[in-house]
Computed example of a mutant assay.
Amino acid sequence: MTTVHAYAATAPNGSLEPFEYQLGPIGPEDVDISVDSCGICHSDLSMLENAWGISAYPFVPGHEVSGRVSAVGEMVTHVQVGDRVGLGWHAGYCMTCDECLGGHHNMCSKAEQTIVGRHGGFADRVRARAASVFKLPAGIDAGEAGPLLCGGITVFNPMMQFGLPPTGRVGIIGIGGLGHLALQFARAWGCEVTAFTSSESKTQQALAMGAHDTLNSRDPNAIAGAARRFDLLLSTVNVPLDWSAYLATLKPRGRLHLLGVQVEPLELSQFPMLMGQLSVSSSPVGSPLAIRRMLEFAARHQIAPVTEHFRMEQVNDAMEHLRAGKARYRIVLDRH
């Protein structure tokens, strides 16, 4: 038996306190990761607060793990003890359903989420199935890798999934934890990139991170002036907007893709969608193949999150920093 030292909350929105639990014998397809660092995603905060009604307590957050392999099961072949690896939202897949066999593991109805019904990476060790553990390529800074395993793949997946051409025009709505990564990926993809933001300071930062242009997201005239401009809009916000106004900025056959999670129903006007053959869609993270390609792409183009670092024992300060909206742009907890 292996004792794991973690940080857990015992009630919704509770403080994260030292917590120990035991890992049983390692399974044949399992990988144990000695955690070096773990990013904090807004989903960790949502789960801590039980905002989605699926949290179980004691709750150990953390699904943007970077570390080294400490043990492997007898059937694991693609990583070995000592390898630098990462773990994201999923900790395992059934590997036999149509979605898994078709390469869409992120759509597996029996997929195991790293922090749903199991303990996550705010700990010194975490266990996952081999297919969800990824060797970090050379050129990826392990201390900055965690946010790529959730935020990075979330914004990369639609670019790959929908065959975005490098001549495309892309608008990024919201320049935060997801949006600042989307800017970098879309720019490296070859696209003309526009950032939608209402913050003057973020306007300058967006341009520095790859945007060719910016638009004030609170100025209806500015949005109206971008009519029929974009092939793809990636929304990274979790609040309702005037979606009809944003749909009007799409070219015919354009797509509005929602990545930020909002609980309110969408208000959309169908007629403009019909006339322009527009699409509205959404997606969760990405398949193992998409994650592997995302990491290779990030290494090749030197794409990295902008991070703020806290020590693991400062986890409550870090969560409050995120809750207050002060994160610029991703928070990482370091064990060492």
Rank of each mutant, 00 (worst) to 15 (best):
G62S: 11
H257V: 00
Q302C: 12
G53D: 12
R228Y: 07
I26K: 09
P28K: 07
S287W: 08
G152V: 09
L256G: 10
P265H: 10
Q161Y: 08
V60R: 02
V285S: 10
E267W: 10
S279Q: 10
R311N: 13
F297P: 00
H212S: 12
G171Y: 06
P25S: 07
L164I: 11
R300W: 07
L181Y: 00
E320Q: 09
A11E: 11
L215T: 14
L234V: 08
R118F: 15
G286F: 04
V85C: 01
K251N: 04
L215Y: 05
R84H: 15
R335S: 14
L232S: 09
Q205V: 12
A318W: 02
M159V: 07
F310C: 05
M1Y: 08
A11L: 06
L258C: 04
K110L: 12
H180E: 00
V72T: 12
R84P: 05
G139R: 02
Y246L: 13
A226Q: 10
G276M: 09
L45W: 12
P12L: 01
H309N: 08
V31A: 01
E267F: 04
Q262R: 14
A138S: 15
A8K: 03
R187H: 10
D36H: 11
G146D: 04
D32A: 02
D83N: 03
E20C: 11
L23F: 11
K110M: 13
C94F: 05
L45N: 04
T194S: 05
D98P: 06
R300F: 14
S279V: 12
D317H: 08
T214C: 15
Q205I: 13
T2S: 15
E64R: 01
P284Q: 15
L322A: 07
N13Q: 13
D334H: 07
Y7R: 05
V85P: 00
P272L: 07
R292T: 15
S43L: 03
S199C: 06
S55E: 01
G179W: 07
R330E: 01
Y7W: 09
G325P: 02
D36M: 07
Q161R: 15
L247S: 14
E267Y: 14
P61S: 12
G62V: 10
D83E: 02
K110H: 12
S287H: 07
A11H: 10
M160R: 10
V116I: 15
P272H: 03
R68F: 00
V35N: 03
D213M: 14
G92S: 02
L181F: 03
L232G: 04
R68G: 02
A123R: 00
V116Q: 15
E200M: 12
Y21H: 10
H104A: 12
T3H: 07
D36V: 04
D317A: 13
I175A: 01
